[in-house]
Amino acid sequence: MRSLFLSRLTAIWLLLALVTIGSWVVGHGPGLVDHRLAGVVALVIAMVKVRFVILDFMEIRHAPLWLRLAGEVWCAGLAIGLTTLFLIG
């Protein structure tokens, strides 16, 4: 039981929860003064979280190369695309 819950999954869950609260503070609390920087930080943090969910919760980290590549490319593409759209706006 202990080994089941004291796992890598739990560590990742804790990390993601802390990062979520952190990015919330950046967006709403005292955080960053520069809105554009704050926006980019929030987007990049979101995509890093998404990557963890894909790799570890969806278990793509050890999947065959095609599946892992598809996941990574989607994450990177969306991160670049959303940040670009945000910045030119």
């Binding site: 950046v26 967006g27 979280k49 998404v50 969910v53 919760f57 969806m58 959303l82």
Partner: peptide, 25 residues
């Protein structure tokens, strides 16, 4: 089990991006 779990993780990750876009950015 893995098939069902993968769908639930999809729901989770879509919300992560939506949260950032609507509430933060």
């Amino acid at each position: 089990l893995e098939t069902g779990a993968s769908f639930w993780h999809l729901v989770d990750l879509l919300w992560i991006v939506l949260f950032a876009l609507l509430y933060l950015v």
